[in-house]
Nucleic acid binder design. Structure first.
Length: 644
RNA sequence: GCCGUUGUAGCUCAGUGGUAGAGCACUUCCUUGGUAAGGAAGGGGUCACGAGUUCAACUCUCGUCAAUGGCUCCA
């Protein structure tokens, strides 16, 4: 007999060789019906794995990430099996489960695949699933594995096997399909009830752009048809929140082929929105002791040679521009920090001047690969809410903490609850990618980790994601369709002060080097507006929204009264429109609701006589009638709450 | 940059080898109304751009540009 410890702490005895499925059966019929995978000790395993020693056991269902992983991993195999039947001779790369579904990278040889082929593949998958094949694990020797795939002619699997240790190689067989796979898998295909292939894309073999590009097919499966329908509805809903669509509808920004790819042009409403965001941040920064500065949009090549950006990015930047007579080279500004270093260097600095916090809404230009451009989130010209803090090494942690405070305050005001704080360190195996001494890197990395801990941030640490000059703390949020975008960033930098030979005089008359913090709470105005649009579905907070109030006269007879109300509101800086069309009230209300304006004021005979307004709140309904003054104080109170 | 898809009116989209259509929006007129669509008429498109095939190209072929889903990249 063996002892199995369940998650509730209870210990049960079973005969040696009992499987997780049998344990599930012993617990309840419902669990046995829903269980997908299990975890023995630290390992996720299939349900048919015999348990041979005392261990802990967790049973996973669809409600667990690990259960879904196994479910989708098996689904990827089924897709591969279907594709192999439909397109004999294709070669398979890898096919893992991902956050929402799975994919398989496939070399389709001479076939070309598009989404038009999906229904046939889905049908074949359903056919295979209906046969209910078991997924049978088989341990094979390295030689046997190599022989199998050599005979099959699949060089991708051969390459994968070469990297594996003999004795750890397993195949999974489902019907006629055999795949190299670590597992685990579902016991059989019975739980898979709904199948949908989503899209196709190119993907380099092993993520290396120098190697062959395979065709990646993304798909998702569910244990219930209804869940698939809900997921597809969710995707549809997400599309409605897409900032590219909303930005166009709300007339915030646009793009023009003539202006150029990746160069957003801001329309009046979008510009006003951006300015409100900027003023909001300026006000916060002023409280934290920042000073605003301004710099030109170009800088002499020497500036970037000094900073190190030229060596690192010169070849991949917009080509330099030159003066016609002297041939002097200038780069479009890709970063604000070198300019800010020169501001620091513009006069001798004492320890009394530190921390020196220089802030600029600096527009920068970077050459992004054409395939990378995406709405406002990835562009070639954008404005950073940048600032550089020059401080003594002793002040570093406190300054870092204050920056985190600013970012957290902004996220709170704008209701970003669901963010990821990521500490990006350098790749210890690839140090030549970075500039600066080991010692400084270690100091910088320690400072970030300590500051984040001090502010109670729940961080994830990723090696190899640091900037080339220093480690960073990034704040990321997800967009409408679940893609992660980096917003706020805080970076420690010992290198630029050194390269620019920045100094301050210490109390004992020594010349010492300051430390620098780069930070941008929004990241870029463009990306932040994009993410905010998707986050709010275009229903911005009252203080930020382009139009706060629209007046809807019942008929043209009340136009004059509407104008009077508008004037009163504008005196109080309330952003107000009038719907002057000769339409019925119902129509005006409908259009105002669709345009997401927070408040509608209905004015007609009653209101004019009593010198009142009828207020309707977007998405809420009729709030009854009140005086203009009463309405203004309602707005002011609401805004105060939002900014609190 | 690479692989795939797409490009027709301001927006969303139909469409055919014989130089174009719908709904919404817009303009004008009628209507003067009370909390999610009143009615009528009208204007608006070198069918992304450039070549080629053809008697004839918006339609077929090639190229360019742009957008888009990924991959790689991201100071």
């Amino acid at each position: 007999m063996i002892q199995i410890t369940l998650p509730d702490g209870s210990i049960k005895e079973f005969p040696k060789g009992t499987t997780p499925y049998e344990v599930a059966v012993s617990i309840s019929e419902g669990l046995a019906r829903n269980v997908l995978a299990a975890q023995l000790g630290d390992h996720v395993v299939g349900l048919a794995t015999p348990i041979t020693e005392n261990t802990s056991l967790v049973l996973y269902t669809w409600n667990d990430t690990d259960g879904k992983d196994v479910f989708w991993h098996t689904s990827a195999h089924i897709m591969a099996a279907a594709i192999e039947q439909l397109y004999p001779g294709v070669k398979f790369g890898i096919g893992p489960a991902i956050e929402n579904g799975f994919y398989y990278d496939i070399d389709f040889m001479n076939y070309t695949i598009s989404s038009d082929d999906f229904p046939a593949i889905e049908a074949k998958m359903q056919e295979i699933i209906a046969q209910r094949p078991k997924l049978v694990k088989r341990e094979v020797s390295k030689k046997e594995a190599l022989d199998y795939f050599t005979q099959k002619g699949d060089e991708y699997k051969i390459e994968l096997i070469r990297d594996l240790e003999d004795g750890t190689i397993t195949f999974y067989e489902s019907g006629h399909f055999v795949d190299l796979c670590r597992g685990p898998h579902l016991f059989d295909t019975a739980p898979i009830k709904a199948v949908k292939l989503l899209n196709t894309a190119g993907a380099y073999w092993r993520g290396d752009e120098k190697r062959k590009q395979l065709t990646r097919i993304y798909g998702i499966t569910f244990p219930k048809k209804k869940e698939l329908d809900e997921y597809l509805t969710l995707l549809e809903e997400a599309k409605k929140r897409d900032h590219r669509k909303l930005g166009k509808e709300m007339e915030l920004f646009t793009f023009s082929q003539k202006v150029g790819a990746g160069l957003p042009i801001w329309l009046p409403k979008g510009t006003a929105l951006r300015e409100r965001l900027e003023n909001f941040l300026k006000k916060v920064q002023k409280q934290y002791g920042y000073q605003q500065v301004m710099c030109p949009h170009i800088g002499n090549v020497e500036l970037y040679k000094t900073s190190g950006h030229y060596q690192k990015y010169g070849a991949d930047s917009f080509r330099p521009i030159t003066t016609p007579q002297e041939g002097e080279e200038f780069f479009l500004k890709p970063m604000n920090c070198p300019h800010h270093c020169e501001i620091y260097a513009s006069k001798p600095r004492s320890y009394r001047d530190l921390p020196l916090r220089l802030a600029e809404f600096g527009t920068v230009y970077r050459y992004e690969q054409s395939g990378e451009l995406h709405g406002l989130t990835r562009v070639r010209g954008f404005t950073q809410d940048d600032a550089h803090i020059f401080c003594t090494p002793d002040q570093l942690k406190e300054e870092f903490c204050k920056v985190i405070d600013i970012i957290l305050y902004i996220f709170k005001v704008l209701d970003f609850k669901d963010f990821i704080a990521q500490v990006s360190l350098r790749d210890p195996d690839n140090k030549e990618k970075y500039i600066g001494s080991d010692e400084n890197w270690m100091k910088a990395e320690a400072a970030i980790i300590e500051a984040a801990a001090e502010r109670g941030l729940n961080t994830t640490v990723v090696k190899g994601e640091a900037a080339f000059y220093g480690p960073k703390l990034d704040f990321m949020v997800k967009d409408a369709i679940g893609r992660k975008w980096q917003l706020g960033t805080v970076q420690v930098d010992y290198n630029l002060p050194e390269r620019f030979e920045l100094e301050y005089v210490s109390p004992d008359q020594q010349k010492l080097r300051p430390v620098m913090i780069h930070r941008a709470p929004f990241g870029s105005m463009e990306r932040f507006v994009a993410v905010l649009l998707e986050h709010t579905a275009g229903e911005f907070p009252l203080w930020l929204t382009p139009d706060q109030v629209i007046i809807l006269p019942i008929s043209e007879k009340y136009q004059e009264y509407a104008l009077k109300v508008k004037a009163l509101l504008e005196e109080q800086e309330v952003r107000t429109l009038i719907d002057e069309r000769s339409e019925k009230a119902g129509r005006k209300i409908r259009d105002a609701e669709i345009s997401k304006i927070p408040f509608m004021l209905i004015v007609g005979e009653k209101e004019e006589e009593s010198n009142m307004i009828s207020v309707r709140e977007h998405g809420v309904g009729d709030l009854g009638s009140m005086s203009v003054d009463g309405f203004v104080s309602l707005l002011q109170q609401k805004i105060k709450q939002e900014l609190n």
